[in-house]
Design a protein around this nucleic acid. Structure first.
Lengths: 123, 123
DNA sequence: CGGGATCCGAGCAGATACTG
DNA sequence: CAGTATCTGCTCGGATCCCG
């Protein structure tokens, strides 16, 4: 057993955390915040395809988990900045590794998919 | 820009890969296979809470992506072993890092959630 | 043992409209 | 600008039954 306890157990708290991390949007947001604080609509524009509702929900979850901070500036109209917390920062190293793996091995994965599809299509 | 190209773009292939990885069950399965080949019902028993259908679907996706291999032994009844491919093996290092991050920082996350909930509950 | 097929209900996501 | 509210689908996952 390479884990401190059984990660595969049903109500294991690690699963709860892992569960939260296993979210495409959350990963992209964390990755995007790595370079510094970003405002709401800026995130919305940068992360193509996310809806305002889902972005809002995901940000709230990440804030609840203590991974990002939300700062409101009392300008008119109001400005809100999202930034990584120190905890969130420690996570982005790992998330980055995942993103870079995807980049490096994308071709291999696509090739595997193509050959898999060809094999089952032949049937 | 720390990526070779814009990961946040809509139809970026990296997103497709990242999307696949952002799956709680897939991560758990990859992690579980790290120690060696495992049979179907063994996985089913080990990864508590997964249904046979979802396990089957997830395994198929991972196989399609070239991350795991499926070997059928013509015994009676038939035996099927799932194992990491070399490509999948390179990924588990990163997945492991994620799992260990979750383990190490679980307490901090739970604490953050508690204080967040207390703050919004007070309103 | 290792699945596929089917049915079904809950929840999540998209679109739209409105607000401080 | 930065969201909330509501409604509506529509996919995902659980349960069950069956097969090689």
């Amino acid at each position: 057993m390479k884990h401190a306890y059984n990660v595969y157990e049903d109500r294991c708290p690690t699963r709860l955390v892992l569960d939260r991390l296993a979210d495409k949007w959350a990963l992209l947001i964390l990755d995007r915040l790595e370079d510094g604080p970003v405002r709401f609509n800026h995130l919305r524009r940068d992360i193509k395809g996310i809806s305002q509702k889902v972005l809002s929900q995901t940000l709230k979850k990440l804030e609840r988990d203590g991974l990002i901070s939300r700062t409101v500036f009392p300008t008119v109209p109001v400005t809100v900045e999202y930034a990584l917390t120190p905890l969130g920062l420690t996570l982005t190293e790992t998330v980055s590794a995942l993103a870079h793996w995807a980049e490096r091995n994308m071709d291999a994965v696509l090739a595997a998919q193509a050959s898999y599809d060809a094999a089952s299509g032949a049937r």
